[in-house]
Every structure is written in C-alpha cells, then in structure tokens.
Design a protein around this nucleic acid. Sequence first.
DNA 1: CGAAGTTTTGAGGACCTTCAAAAGTTGTGG
DNA 2: CCACAACTTTTGAAGGTCCTCAAAACTTCG
Lengths: 248, 248
Amino acid sequence: MSAHSKPDLRAHLAKFMRGRPISKEAQQAFLDLDAKRQEVGMYQDFVREGEPTERCCFVESGLISRYKTWRTGGRQIISFHLRGDFIDLSSSLIKIQDHGIRTHTPSVLFTVTCNDILRLTADYPELGRAFWFDTLVDAAIFQKWTLNVGRRTARERVAHLLLEFAYRFEAIGQSDGREFILPITQADLADAVGLSPVHINRSLQWLRSQRLIRTFSKTVIIEDMEALVAMADFRSAYLHPEGPRELT
Amino acid sequence: MSAHSKPDLRAHLAKFMRGRPISKEAQQAFLDLDAKRQEVGMYQDFVREGEPTERCCFVESGLISRYKTWRTGGRQIISFHLRGDFIDLSSSLIKIQDHGIRTHTPSVLFTVTCNDILRLTADYPELGRAFWFDTLVDAAIFQKWTLNVGRRTARERVAHLLLEFAYRFEAIGQSDGREFILPITQADLADAVGLSPVHINRSLQWLRSQRLIRTFSKTVIIEDMEALVAMADFRSAYLHPEGPRELT
DNA sequence: CGAAGTTTTGAGGACCTTCAAAAGTTGTGG
DNA sequence: CCACAACTTTTGAAGGTCCTCAAAACTTCG
C-alpha cells in the first residue's frame, strides 16, 4: 500500500456509474478510498467463513469464487468473480463472514475497509443506492442458481454456467462472446453446479458430442450458440446489464 | 386507500429499526409513505414475471411466495413471506419484475410506489442502508438455498425448510418455535425445495417415522428439535437476526 | 523426465422421478 | 347438515439420473 502505487479504482467506479448520474464529489470520494493492493497466489483462501469482516475486495485481475462449506467438508461455490467485480461489498453490513473467498488463478485484489464503505453511503446517498443495486444483482444471480440447481438436468446446468461465463467475459472484453479461457478444473465446476466431478465430465462430453461446444486445455468455444442458449434456457436479463432505475 | 383507513406502517418500521438508530425525521417520512391497502384472495398471482415494477409490497397478513417459472411451466418458489416482511423492496431498483408473487392464503398487503422508496433513500441515507441490508438478507437466504438444493438430500431439505418456518413464525409471535400452522400444500413444498410432490410426501413420512415431527391438518409440530436441527444442519445465523453493522 | 494433478472410463447402486390410482380431506350448495 | 365434487395426501411400481468407488489415460509443471 506504499504511496507510489496507490490502486487506481477508476475502472471499478465506471462499473458503478453504468447508465446513472453520480455527482463529481461522490466520484472523487470513491476514487479517494484508501485501497490496499494485494497479490494473491493460486488456490488461496483469501477470506474464511466465520472471520470478522474487516475489509471488502475488488477484483483487479484473476478468477475468484465465493463458497460455503457444508458439514461434511465439501464446498458449494456460490459465485465467481472476474476483473472489475466488487466481490463482497455487502459484507460491509455484517459482522461475520458468511462465506469464504478463494482464488482460482493468481490474482490481484484491491481492498478497502468496510467502515469506509459505510461512510461513503452516509455521505453520498447515490453511492448507497449503487451499492444496494450491486447486492440486488447478486441476489438475482443466486435466485437464478436456485432455479438452475433445483430444477435442471446436469447438462442444462453446465451449459447455463458456461453461457454465464461467456457473457461476463465478453462484458469485460476478455471474450468475443464465443470463445474464452476458463481457468478452473472440472472439480471446481462440480462444486459450482452441485454435481459430482464424474458427472460434470460426462455432461461436458455430451455437450461436445452434440457439437454445442468445443474445449481444449482451458479454452471453451461455443460452437452453436443458438442451440446452447435454447437448451440451457439462458436469458441474460437476470444479470441486469441495464443498471438500476433512477428516481423520477 | 380512502383517508379513513390509511395503512399503519409502524410494525414494518419497527422491523427496519431492529438494533439501529434511525432519525426521528426518517421515521416520520417512512410512516408518511402513501401506502395502499389491498386484500387479496387465496392463490392469487398478485405480481407476474415480466410486468413493469410500479409498486412494492409489505405483508400485513397472510402467507405469500415469490417464484420463478421455467420453460416447461413449473414453478420454483424462491422465498416465502410472512407478516411484517417487505416482499420486494429491491424491485424498486429494477424496471421489470423478475419474479411472480402469489398468495397462499387470503392476505392483506400494503403497497407503496417504487419511486417513493427511492426518494426516501435519497433523502435519508440511513434508510437507504436499511433497505440495502434487507436485500442482503434476501441474498443470504438465496445463497443458503443454493447450498440446500444443490447439496442435500430430500429429507434434509424438507427439514431445513420446516425449521426456517418455525424460526420465522416464532420471530413474529405466531409460534413458540415448536408448533405452527403452515397453510401450504405438499405440492407447494415441492415447488420450494425442488422435488416432486410424491417425494415430499415420502420425506415427510420419514421425518414422522423418526419421531422428528408430527403433523395434522396444516399444523406442524417439531417433536425432537435437537435431532432435527442436527440432521438438517440448521443454523439460523443466515437469517441475520442481529441486524446490520453500523458506522463506527 | 518424473511427479502430481486432472480428465476419462467402467460398473453397481442409491435417490428421486413419473405415471397411475386409491384413500382421505375440505369446501360448497342444496 | 348431508352429499358430492374438487382437491390433497398416500401408495405402488418401473425407470432414469446422478453418485460413489476405483483405476487408467492424459496433461501440466517443476
């Protein structure tokens, strides 16, 4: 956190401002946040369930997941986060972490104290609303997953997750929407969609056999977007790309 | 909405104030909201997915669910709401409803315009934070369900949902924590936990055979709380009864 | 090049689904 | 207040999806 390398939050601010007016003062207050830069290696449990919440994190680079552990030790990944995402903004409101955070690739995180976040919302209601919206999108994604996990076949779940990645990588310029690098293992996919690694493997084989996707090494290519979207019943609206509604 | 019956929002305000300071002015502004009272019959789809969001609703009485429909017409219930709950506060931030709302019993709802809600957050940042926290608790419940639905057996899922009801009915004084009236059908339970009605029935029979619960008509009695909590791995912390953390 | 990690294959079995029908309960109108 | 209709719960049986365990083939990385 040395002075010569104060993290640049402009990209993250831009995300919050998507389609909505935020005053110059609020923007400046956000950029002035005392952020700390942290480099984290691969497969590090950066935050653990049950710890007190001190700081919350932006993803500057890397692929990161939030997860819950259950009794018998397994993980359920509840969300993935890419560059530009604010991972756990809403932790600012709670005292104890209710999920873990782990890196899947070497990553760079910017962290700020929860208290600084709360102060921003007190001073600038418009930022409070932006943070609220961020939590809302989170909730919408969880809702979608409840539906996915509760009511869809293994193939559909895997297809849906791949499409979500394609969409989100495209949104941050790391994909053309068809081809992207997904640096996670099939075991991680299993933890995310609630299936065994073996069955993930068979589901991927089926998607390949139908010429819906191709994969090599960690690259995924969607071969037949239309058919894949149809079989997964993927509708991107749940990611709320339009941004929040404003006071009229 | 005639003047002689202006809905009384004090009970709902009390819920938002749980353990946190809200200024007298903000409280008054909340109570002055122009709320409309609506009586709704049983099994009415009060809000439909895809409609524009105009108003959002408090539950004054009744049992109400939010749900998503999937391609083939089935429902996934994503949450239940009891007296005192603000069902879809966060709809204020989005333009199109992403879920339906239906009553399971005859109910009374209070509704206010989304714009009035947004105005409150602009005028009183502390209310904005309270609303943000409400959405956070929502998100936490969805996360929990992703874990439940993704990783637990039918019996555990059913047990967990019954415990959530016991806990929430107790919190609003409609149960001693052991016995409560659950006015929904097994088919509704099935829609909530992502199982077939037949299997819900068999799971309930198993819970009864183990002397964990008893049921008659629409009444549920938890016979062995300790064992049920253990088998369902139920921890109420995810409902965040402690309220939000405050700026220090 | 060898070791560790990851993906793939096979087999047997558990859990949950679907379909269908019987039994029981609730609500309504005569 | 009873009779009947509609709904809900329960039972049975067959079958599919997904799981576990275990080992082999393949990749990646030091």
